[in-house]
Each structure stands twice: as structure tokens, then as C-alpha cells.
Amino acid sequence: MGKIIVVTSGKGGVGKTTTSAAFATGLALRGHQTVVIDFDVGLRNLDLVMGCERRVVYDFVNVINGEGNLNQALIKDKRVENLFILPASQTRDKEALTVKGVARVLEALKKRFEYIICDSPAGIEHGAIIAMYFSDEALIVTNPEVSSVRDSDRIIGMLSSKTRRAVQNLTPVKEHLLITRYIQKRVNSGEMLSIQDVQEILAIPLLGVIPESPSVLKASNAGIPITLDKKSDAGLAYLDIVASFLGEEPPPREKKGFLTRFFGN
């Protein structure tokens, strides 16, 4: 049976969709059957970031309403084996995602996939709650910045009270902190919250840190998940995160030397 993982944050623009695409791609690269679902009904964007926007025919809401079946809606990634995308609907609102309907789709997906990644919309309303409701684990995407950290804390509170696992008194949702857009230089000069600061405030286990990187924008411009860019520091950081999520020690990344930094590699 597959594992459901929600990628959530509360605040918008911190990198939920980038992370969902990169993390799902990373899991699939490691040979795991993976599907990534866009829960942002009305504002779908995962299809663009994954580069499959022109292949969307049926979407998540169509499947829930029985207007199309799951096989018609699932888009198979052309670059990575084992990777599928379930796009959100662009013309409905988030209320179209009913608990019953989502449960039925997720049950069907759990039989077929090892990992089901749910890309949550921003906010703390219905859309975000339904995205986290059935989750077994959660990636809490946080920028080292006050509003993002505060919203993440809010979301952590909701994970422990509003999810199926909380309501039914099951083992709580396993939480993972993911710090994105991290700039070590600004941390060193005291202008940015450090990894330890954020971890201390939120008090959940750290899965990993993604450095701020120009390659993230370039990748989304092109519709390529950042984990497919072998030269990107952010892409490598996501691969490390996938490795530690799978319970492995991440390989030690060599710091770029003086010469490689100058001449590239």
C-alpha cells in the first residue's frame, strides 16, 4: 500500500510546487512508483512546473465526479520511468474536493503507487486541509523568514488536529522540516535565520535544506523538475533529501574548490 505525503506550508510562494515536483521526480528516479497530485484546484501550476501542461485532458475533479477515469487523468512523465502526474482542475473551486471523493481517488492510487505526493495549495482553508487530511507524512516547506516560519507553525498545529490521523486517534502524521531558499552567506552575516534557529522555533525533525539557487527559476521556466538538473546545487540538495527520506545517509557533497568555482566543472 502506498504512502501519502503532503507538501504543505501555509504561506504561498515558499516552494511547495517546486518541492512536490522535485521530490516526486527524485523518488521515481530511485525506482519508486510515484504519483504527484495537484490539490490547488482553480490555480493549477504543477503541470507547468512538470512541463506537461499541454497533455492535460482530464483532471482530479473530473475523476472525483466520475466524468473521466483515473487512467485517463494520470499523465505519465516522458523523462522519468515510474512517475505520474494528476493535474488539478482549472475551472472549479476548491469545494469540488470532497472528503469522500478524495478518499476514493487516494484509495485507488494507494493500490498502484508506492508514494503519493500531494501538492497543497497555500492558506489554511478547505483546500489545504483536504490536501493534508489523508496524509501519512508531511513535508513542511519553510523559508528562513518570519512570516513563513509563523505560518509553518500554524500548519504543524493543523497537522496534529485536523488530519484523519488526528481525528481518528491514530499514529500522528510524521513531520519533516524542509528549509528552502537558504542563503548561507546572509546567515553568516546575521541577516537571515539559520537552520538551527528555524528548527529550534518549529521543533520538528529536519529533513534537509535547499539553497537559494538561480537554477530553480531556470528549471521552472523550462518545465523541468530541478532534480533532473545534475549541475544544480538545489537539484543535488533535493536528491540528498530523497535519500535521507528513504533512510539513507546522504552522500557527502564535496564543497566546490577555488578552481572549480572559477572555471566551472
Partner: peptide
């Protein structure tokens, strides 16, 4: 005072209050 330290202190207070 460094702004990151200010941010941390403010966050600790508000997060504890909201919790």
C-alpha cells in the same frame, strides 16, 4: 542588533503565544 536575532526572538514569542 543583528536582524536575524531580532527575527528569532520575535518569532519565539509569537509562536509560543499562538501555541
Amino acid at each position: 542588533q543583528k536582524t536575524a536575532a531580532v527575527a528569532k526572538e520575535r518569532l519565539q514569542i509569537i509562536v509560543a503565544h499562538e501555541r
